[in-house]
Amino acid sequence: MDRFSIIKELGSGSYGTISKAVCMQSGEVVAIKKLKTRYRSWESCMNLREVKTLRAMNHSSIIKLKEVIMEHGELHFVFEYMECDLFQVMKNRRNVPFSEAEVRMWCFQIFEGLAHMHNRGYFHRDLKPENLLASNDDIKIADLGMAREVDSHPLFTDHVTTRWYRAPEILLGSPIYGPPVDMWAMSAIMAELFILRPLFPGSSGADEIHKISCVIGSPTKSEWPEGLELAKAMNYKLLVSIFATLMPGISEDAIDLITSLCSWNPSKRPTAIETLRHPFFQSCYHVQPSLNYKDALQSSPHPGTWHLAIKDRSIMA
């Protein structure tokens, strides 16, 4: 760690602190995440979920972990440095809407990153604007500490994902879920980019389900019978859709994509690779249906120079 000079602290939370630093040997600016938990062995550090997940990822739309340093039981993650997160970008707009071109450009990159992550057998579980790091036209997925492997089969906790971006199956207590929860979160984030306010700003788990019901209506028995049973068990009463009235002036393609992503039934949400083929992204790099996952990801254009900032916002549970 004596190779780095700390410039300033960027944020702190229950996990530890994140600082902006410079490598005195190369002059490179980096972000260093110092964990509060102390570790006795290098093996225990390498088995941390965030480390294992990041080591499995290699994509321009996913934050790069450059080094892991352990000194005196203290663990430091050295990341590439970036300027700001998507929450800050939206906050700085001061109610000036983003253009569809801007939303398209950012979301396409995020879905590319998710396609890579899901194809590698992981899902994020905590997508929110604060975990999407932006610089100008570029954006990256960050904070993979809550990520899980798709093929792991324990009963997953429902205390994941900031509530406003939490999928209905999690809110209704389903112990088994997977990559579709990331797609749900992206529907809320994409809508928020258009309207500059949260789409489902629930104050509790029950209120979150109520907010979702108010926006997209109740699922029918044919659409999601399992969800209706979960809702019945928790005494939730669901409502009728007003979704189309919330985003006037938005293109039909954008509305269609967001609507499909926030389907009640997880199995009916498009995958990340299917989303990249949606007409909304027609003007971006187009993933041909004949391409398989690896071909599509290898053919994808790489964004240019990246910069970033990391901001801590506690998970609402």
Rank of each mutant, 00 (worst) to 15 (best):
R3Y: 00
I7A: 05
E9K: 14
E9D: 13
G11L: 04
G13L: 08
G13V: 06
G16R: 04
V22A: 04
M24Y: 08
V29T: 10
K34F: 02
K34Y: 03
S41Q: 03
S41H: 05
W42C: 08
E43T: 06
E50M: 07
V51D: 12
K52D: 10
R55W: 06
R55Y: 09
R55K: 11
A56Q: 14
A56G: 08
M57N: 09
N58L: 07
S60Q: 11
S61K: 01
S61H: 02
I63H: 09
K64E: 15
E67P: 09
E71K: 12
G73V: 03
E74V: 06
E74W: 03
F79S: 02
F79K: 12
D85V: 02
F87Q: 13
F87C: 13
M90Q: 11
K91C: 08
K91G: 09
N92I: 00
R93D: 10
N95F: 08
V96K: 14
A101C: 13
M105K: 15
E112Y: 07
M117N: 02
G121Y: 02
G121Q: 04
F123V: 05
L127D: 13
N131F: 06
L132V: 11
A134I: 05
S135P: 07
N136W: 07
I139F: 03
I139D: 05
D143M: 02
L144K: 01
M146G: 09
V150Y: 06
H153L: 04
H153N: 08
T157G: 07
T157R: 03
D158T: 15
Y165C: 00
P168N: 00
S174Y: 08
P175W: 00
I176C: 07
P180R: 02
D182H: 09
A185S: 12
A185K: 06
A188P: 09
I189M: 13
A191R: 06
F194N: 04
F200Q: 03
F200E: 00
F200S: 03
P201H: 02
G202H: 07
G202I: 03
G202W: 02
S203L: 15
S203G: 11
G205E: 15
D207L: 05
E208M: 14
I212G: 07
I212K: 03
S213Y: 05
V215P: 05
V215C: 08
I216S: 04
T220K: 09
S222I: 08
S222W: 10
E223I: 00
P225Y: 01
E226G: 07
L230R: 13
A231E: 09
A231Q: 10
K232C: 14
N235S: 14
Y236H: 13
K237M: 11
L238P: 10
L239K: 07
V240L: 13
V240R: 13
A244T: 14
P248S: 02
G249I: 01
G249T: 00
A254V: 07
I255W: 11
D256K: 14
L257G: 03
S260D: 14
P266I: 00
K268D: 10
R269N: 06
I273W: 04
I273S: 00
I273Y: 01
T275D: 00
R277V: 05
P279F: 04
F280E: 04
S283M: 12
S283N: 12
H286M: 13
H286D: 12
V287H: 10
A296W: 04
S299P: 11
S299A: 15
S299D: 15
S300H: 02
P303I: 07
T305M: 14
H307Q: 08
A317V: 12
A317H: 11
